[in-house]
Design a protein around this nucleic acid. Structure first.
Lengths: 164, 164
DNA sequence: AGCCCTCGATTGACACGTCAATAATGTTAG
DNA sequence: CTAACATTATTGACGTGTCAATCGAGGGCT
């Protein structure tokens, strides 16, 4: 599939047509996968993936409460994004914000009973959807390969980001 | 890795911890990959991936113009999404909308010189980013595996969607 | 004291995507 | 002919994500 003609016209080659086709398939399909999962979580449990991530983090921690910036670090979100999201979740009664006694300007995020309930109701449907949409779609080997691909992409992504 | 104890408590198993870890890695990393590419396309070319997809489709077609719903089908978008996006692109002078003579209520989308220019300026940076973020991160085998994984996920996704 | 600086968190503006509702213009059944 | 319907496209409302700006409380420096 490599050209029989002269040297690469660029210092380093651009992707081949085949690589580009795979890229598009890969990025579009994974995006569709995420959308489909989000859609199911929404219709079955009235939660978004963001809601789920926040509730999961709060559920796993002692006393079901956490400082806002801790939470941001834990789930890997920008603070601004988290702040917006918490505002929406607070409106729906899933969490509660409360001033932190120890840290100046600190905000404690508390899981409410409503939020706890919503999360527990969502767990099984969510895991089932992951099985149906992801695990059942692939062979065991493909699942392992997917893990390795994700790890390689992540490593490369972090390296790229660090050198910029 | 399978439990040595009794039968599965559910009719069909929920994902194992290992499968769940891979799922999270996979979905989060692919999302981050898309974001990073979008960010580079934005800062280097002032285009979003959506802009790029629309411009690519228009560039590839005769006379650089296309019916709106054709375009939607071609790039696989919902019409409403396309309509919103075209509004934003029209504001920036990348495309132009014009009534269609032959089709009732039809809209012809035209590529403007500005849009053509923007697309041509974006092509190489975009392909370079794909190489740097995706192709360079993986071995040739992993790239092929990624293609097969995407194909398997897509097939399964379409099948699921059809039976609902 | 007064000043600057950092840190934690929020806010506003804007792009993007989805859903449901609405137009505007056919076509077809009665 | 008229009423129902289909097709094409747009719109509004809302949740979501990013960026830059802001705010408020300490902390340290002179």
């Amino acid at each position: 599939m490599t050209k029989a003609t002269a040297d690469p016209p660029n210092g380093r080659q651009l992707p081949t047509a085949e690589q580009l086709r795979i890229w598009r398939d890969f990025i579009e399909t994974t995006h569709a996968l995420g959308s489909q999962l989000a859609s199911r979580l929404q219709t079955e449990c009235s939660l978004s993936p963001g809601d789920y991530a926040v509730l999961l983090a709060l559920t796993e921690v002692q006393d079901h409460q956490m400082r806002s910036s801790e939470l941001a670090t834990h789930i890997g979100w920008e603070r601004s994004r988290l702040s917006h999201h918490l505002g929406r979740m607070e409106r729906r009664g899933l969490i509660r914000r409360q001033e932190c006694a120890t840290v100046p300007r600190g905000a404690e995020i508390h899981l409410t009973p409503t939020g706890d309930e919503a999360f527990r109701a969502a767990t099984v449907p969510h895991l089932r959807a992951i099985r149906e949409l992801f695990v059942d779609a692939l062979t065991p080997d493909q699942i392992l390969a997917a893990g390795e691909i994700a790890a390689a992409l992540r490593t490369h992504l972090d390296a790229q980001r660090r050198e910029e």
